Amino acid sequence: MSSAVPFTVPSFAGEVADAVVKVLDSGWVTTGPQTAAFEQDFADYLGAAHVVAVASCTTALELCLRGMGLPQGSPVLTPSLTFCGAINAILHAGHRPVLVDIDEDTLVPGPETVAVAAARLVSAGTPAAAMIVQNQGGYPVDLAALTAAAGLDRTRVIEDAAHGPGAGRDGAPVGSSSYAACFSFYATKNMPIGEGGAVATTDQELADRVRAMRLHGMSKDSWKRYMPGGSWRYDVKDIGLKANMTDIQASIGRAQLTALPEWQRVRGELVARYDEALRGLPGLTLPQRDLDGVQHAWHLYQIRVPERDALIAELEAAGVATSVHFIPASHMTYYRGVLGEQECARVPVTDRVAEELLSLPLYPGLSPDGQDRVVTALTKALRARD
């Protein structure tokens, strides 16, 4: 039986259906003119020099790591509190994840925790070769501070901006000035397409490499080969993946992008209502707060509560669906085998906080009545514990 208040419901702009039909009628449905147009539209939205559309944020991360040309087995710093796809991207690229603990207030690594992990690698004689930083829940990290703490050049830092559309720091959107920022358009994200991702970069060479590697490393995609005047000849200069976005997806993305600012405004209003209603409840910690110059994307509304798992069951019984973001990599069987017990024990704050995290419903279609039902059920459950 479905919950009366789902955890999330994807929003779609009114123009989506017409956009898809136009692509179907065009006779060209895979990577082509709509994909190129979406890349330009998204680059304009971010203020980024280059955008390359790909199959997912996970493939975007892997392609960026491959594009760096790191030696095989290179240590790559990453938070443990992240989606498994981000860890998989490091492993698939042939490198070694190195776990970084989080700051308790922001739920992302801070300069101090990054510096500790980086110093540990230096002491072992294998300095960090790269780092993936994550905008957990839509909170934009201080990219410059984390880069400096890791002792890395900016061209060795990838921003996992799966939760990032709509976020920014000091007036600059996430992805506008990154060497590599990777976005997700999965069904639950702030700008849902269903599937899909993108790389935003200031670097022409990286953009060119990712563009080639998203289609097996081929020097020309199908559109360039089969358009009038094109040639069937192509070369493969570097191994790649099958990780392209289709024109059907891109047409949805173009329509969705026009609606994103309004959806972000609604998310902000819902967050303000949650803040007002939940502040002061016993045992509840509100999500990370906005700081000066920080624009939160509010992909997730993550609270911290005691006895989290029991509370999830109580809310479900009241018709309210919730979720948890994320199960730390250090808790996963496969990663524990790869990393070892000692490495997995180096993120104590992550381990503690992860047992308390709970994501409440937050999406543009969440009605006031639905949100009130979430608040009522949560308030009743927490006050019964007091």
Rank of each mutant, 00 (worst) to 15 (best):
G94M: 02
G253D: 12
V266F: 05
L278T: 07
T8A: 09
S3F: 09
R66T: 07
I327R: 08
I239M: 11
A329Y: 00
A93H: 01
P287K: 11
L206S: 09
M218S: 09
Q204P: 06
E39W: 02
E314Q: 15
V236W: 07
G27V: 01
S56T: 03
V294Y: 10
P127Y: 08
P173A: 13
Q295C: 12
G69M: 06
A318C: 11
L270E: 07
V76H: 01
D369N: 10
P10S: 14
A345N: 09
Y234N: 01
G370V: 03
Y334A: 15
F326A: 10
S177R: 14
N244D: 06
E195T: 11
T333I: 06
H50C: 06
G94H: 08
I252M: 12
F326C: 14
R120I: 01
V349N: 07
G230T: 11
V324F: 01
S26P: 03
R373S: 04
I132E: 00
Q256Y: 08
G32A: 05
Y274G: 01
A255V: 05
G47D: 15
L146R: 07
L358A: 14
S219Q: 04
D41S: 12
E195K: 09
R225F: 05
D290C: 08
R373E: 07
V98Y: 00
I239S: 10
R383H: 11
G253T: 03
R154S: 15
Y45F: 13
T379F: 03
P306L: 02
A86M: 10
W28F: 06
A180F: 04
R154K: 15
P97T: 01
T106N: 05
E195I: 05
L300R: 13
Y274Q: 03
E159H: 07
V353Y: 02
V236F: 03
F7C: 06
V16Y: 09
K237A: 08
G194P: 08
V320Q: 04
G125C: 08
L70Q: 03
L70M: 03
K242G: 08
G27M: 01
V294D: 05
V305H: 02
P261T: 13
A272V: 10
G67R: 03
L358P: 13
L281D: 10
L357M: 01
R373V: 02
V114F: 03
S178I: 12
A259C: 07
T59S: 14
A55W: 07
E341T: 11
I87E: 12
A167N: 01
Q72R: 15
W298T: 10
E104M: 03
P111D: 00
Q134C: 03
S178V: 09
D386S: 11
V347T: 15
L300Y: 13
V174E: 12
N244F: 07
T31I: 00
W298I: 00
Y335L: 09
V76L: 00
N190M: 14
L260H: 14
A19L: 09
G217I: 02
G229R: 09
R273Q: 14
V116N: 13
Y334N: 10
A144G: 06
A148E: 14
N244K: 10
A115N: 09
R211F: 05
S2I: 07
G293R: 04
D351R: 06
V133G: 08
V375L: 04
G137H: 01
P75G: 03
P111C: 08
A162W: 05
